Simulated assay, not measured.
Amino acid sequence: MLGIETSCDETGVALLRWEQDAPGNGLLSHTLYSQIKLHAEYGGVVPELASRDHVRKLLPLVREALGQAGLAPADLGGVAYTAGPGLVGALLVGASAARAMAWALGVPAIGVHHMEGHLLAPLLEEDPPEPPFVALLVSGGHSMLVEVKGIGDYKILGDTLDDAAGEAFDKTAKLMGLPYPGGPALAKLAEQGRPGTFRFSRPMTDRPGLDFSFSGLKTQVLLAWQQSDQSEQTRADIARAFEEAIVDTMIIKCRRALQASGAKRLVIAGGVGANKRLRTELAAAGEKDGFKAYFPRLAFCTDNGAMIALAGAIRLAHGQHQDESVQVFPRWDLETLPPAV
């Protein structure tokens, strides 16, 4: 299975030989190109530039992935691509290329839901989780808790009401003058912060429910920054307090979701899943509460072709694939996916 990811600002390509009992061991190659330098000048992703760069980079990456795996195009049994959600232009680049390759080779094409790809990314590891489990999907565009009864059998327990966690990281970093992309820079700076110097609220944890809202937290940080001496140490202190507030909020919500569902497994995926504090504290919470936390390796937290190849291979193994039309879905409800049975 060839997997192609072009939903936003990263071009990812991977090859995977599907093995039911050990999917992670079936990964043959994966390549990734990030557009960070391209968009840094603008402080955020410019959709038209992202689409054009995918056009330039996609086929060279496909050739590179095939070369790494020692395979030829004729060896492919299917082509999986991200069909949504994402930037419509970027999605169309990957979908068009995947559909054309599949047609030329006479193999199936499988349109993959981007968030299902993230949700299944821990299955690429040697100790994959088995449903049922709860998944925390945290990225630049999503903060979502999902009850997973089986692959394709999803129930959204909590969702983003305004700023997602990754978006809040990026915007907070920008308002304090940190370079793009702000989230990783803020997390690194937080390591130098002094505990307890600042404290921010844990949004929406004082009431029932599992939805997330981080726009108010962002405003608290802005006010604290504007009223401070704006020294480097203060910047680090605020970064630490902000990161602690985000992580604490997600842990509280995860505990509630696990209790509500009765699950004993928690999957954490998406770009914010690479955050060191989140990984450490969720693992510790699991040891205390009796649940097991599953994380993909850092390379598969951000957007990548391997998770798309895996999701596509699972879908194809259950006889699911698309017709010859090129369709993408910039908005796509995870709960509308059919079960993989």
Rank of each mutant, 00 (worst) to 15 (best):
P195I: 14
T197G: 12
F198K: 03
F198C: 02
R199P: 07
F200W: 07
F200A: 06
S201H: 15
S201A: 14
P203V: 12
P203C: 13
P203Q: 09
M204I: 14
T205F: 08
T205A: 10
P208T: 08
D211Q: 05
S213M: 10
S213H: 05
F214I: 06
G216I: 06
G216C: 08
K218D: 06
V221C: 03
V221P: 04
L222H: 12
L222M: 13
L223E: 11
W225N: 07
W225Q: 08
W225D: 07
Q226Y: 12
Q226A: 12
Q227N: 13
E232H: 11
E232L: 14
A239M: 03
A239G: 11
A241E: 00
F242H: 05
E243T: 06
E244W: 04
E244T: 12
E244G: 04
A245E: 05
I246Q: 06
I246M: 14
D248C: 13
D248Y: 12
T249H: 02
T249D: 04
C254G: 00
C254N: 07
C254Q: 06
R255H: 12
R256I: 12
A257H: 00
L258F: 11
Q259C: 12
S261C: 14
S261K: 03
G262F: 09
G262A: 11
K264P: 06
R265L: 08
R265K: 15
L266W: 04
V267H: 04
I268T: 07
A269R: 04
G270L: 02
G270N: 04
V272D: 00
V272C: 08
G273E: 06
G273H: 02
K276W: 11
R277P: 08
R279T: 10
L282H: 02
L282I: 14
A285K: 01
G286S: 05
E287R: 10
G290N: 06
G290W: 00
G290I: 05
G290H: 01
G290K: 04
F291T: 02
K292S: 10
A293C: 10
Y294D: 01
Y294T: 03
F295N: 03
R297Q: 14
L298Y: 11
L298H: 11
A299K: 13
A299F: 10
F300E: 07
C301F: 01
C301D: 06
T302Q: 03
N304L: 01
N304C: 02
N304S: 09
G305W: 01
G305R: 02
A306K: 00
A309K: 00
A309V: 06
A309F: 03
A309S: 09
L310C: 07
R315A: 14
L316H: 08
A317E: 15
H318G: 15
G319A: 10
H321S: 13
D323Q: 09
S325E: 15
V326I: 15
Q327V: 14
V328F: 05
V328E: 02
P330K: 04
R331E: 11
